[in-house]
Design a protein around this nucleic acid. Sequence first.
DNA 1: GCCGTTTTCGGCCCGACTGTTTTCAGTCG
Length: 595
Amino acid sequence: MTNHELAELLKKVSAAYQILGENRFRIIAYDKAADSIEHLTTDIKDYWIAGTLGEIEGVGKTIAEHIDEILKTGKNRHWESVFAKVPEAVFPLLFVPGIGPKKAYALVTILRLENEKSAVTDLEKAAKAGKIEPLDGFGKRSQDVILEAISAFKKGQIKENRMPLPYADVVAIEVMEYVAKAGGCEKIDVLGSLRRKVATIGDIDIAVATNDPDKIIERFISFPHQKIIEKGPSGATLLLANGKQVDMRVQTPKAYGAMLQYFTGSKQHNIALREYALTKGLSLSEHGIKDLKTGKVRVFATEEQFYHHLGLDYVVPELREGRDEITMAKKHSLPTLIEKGQILGDLHIHSSYDLHSSHDVGVSSVKEILETADILGYEYVGFSDHNPSVSNLSSSVITQIMKKRKKYYEQQYYSYTTGVRKGKKATSLFVMCEVDIKPDGSLALPEDAFEFVDAVVVSLHSAFTQPRKQVTDRIIKALTSHAKVRIFGHPTGRLLGSREGVDADWKEVFVVAKEKNIALEINSFPERLDLPDGLVAVAKEMGVKFCIDTDAHDKAHMNLMPYGVSVARRGGLSDDDVVNTYPYTKFAQWLYNKK
DNA sequence: GCCGTTTTCGGCCCGACTGTTTTCAGTCG
């Protein structure tokens, strides 16, 4: 059972309790536990095995026992007895936007929907036949809304449809530039998961500080769209032609801080913050901070003022995930996060040099890449082309290819340095290689060929579905197989939206990385963003180092570095944790594995 | 059902919007 499946199950219990009129705080408790488990970065089974289910926020004695039972036996007798009291056709309807437990129950009982499997289709038929309009509490409008929601639901236009962060960035910038053109925008920012730089984005949220909200909202809804989902005095929501939803919120400049804070989230952070504020007799909202004694609301132009008023240090958006950031803000112990400008090199770049690789070669020349590195202000770069294909070539041929390649890079580097202006420092070059970790954990580069590289990045490119024990052993074997293995590339191998990462025992892997002083890569490529931020935080706690790379196959990709940096920031990393913030000498020492 | 920098009892995040309602319930983020 995955975390997501368990979370869904807990939400189902909550829905059943809502229909049964159970104590509302018990319902909230189930929702909270579901939310918390959904956002865990560790597999629920790991907590179970370790006997630490109770350490999960919102999971107490009772729910922990229920989870234990379901993981042990695949069933939970208590929950099943709860579900049995509710018509089964209710549950599939909950996935239709706008239908919650109460409406679902009303529809199912009045319309006598009985079949769980066909409930959504049956409801659609009833709506088309005009059978919903006359029902108590429903009307013509709600009938139409249900029809629209079902049709969107069937098209798969439901929240699953998340986009990688960089793509959301592009859409957001387009909308913001459009809105700003109208004039009257004092400030404009992204909000929500986009501002927190989460790896995948559902809806795009935008904030505007203005003294003329009507004008801004009118301007916003004139942006090319498929549909206006919502419109009110404080904002509006559009569905764009590409199926993405964009929310815009407006606020006066003097109260902008609270609104920015409120809609940046995360939900968990805000709930924790509001609970903390209540202990101080303060109530938070997007309008400001209300003193519960006097009833007076204070407004804040900036978020910094907002946090400071609560006696907290400012929490950057990337850390607002409801982990322990509020406690740290109280104790002034928030980390100073790494910044893009501190990155001094990119060690995972593919040039157009063809070495008979089994994977993609890059499109940019060595010279172009060195020039780009110069522009980016890097002190060093590493060329990590894929290893030559091991299925077609013998070991001795591969060794010859690698030898020739090293010479090629040296020549290219020589001609590049002679072209660099006098008095200016040339970017240094490391001849590296991205080596496949074969399914058995051996490396796809013969021993003799290691002589012709400074260091290697090892990565998984196959057999992603191996069982946990096997893939864990495989990774550890690869990390310990050669002293020149220095970076573990895109560790989980996930591709956002299309492939889950491998299911390894990450803590075991991190122990080995720490021991061997191997850096975990944070790959900046939009579909990867791998290592994921949650695991970054776990590895940092264990003292492991990181290397933020772009995996560029084109010199333009070298500009993707900020996305890797945002993953690092979400994982709580400082410059010390990241080897490619080291100046050249220190970095070279690390790369050559000198103590 | 959970939880504790006033608490092991007695609280539990907050507001906007929508539709169908004359004062609110449901849903959402």
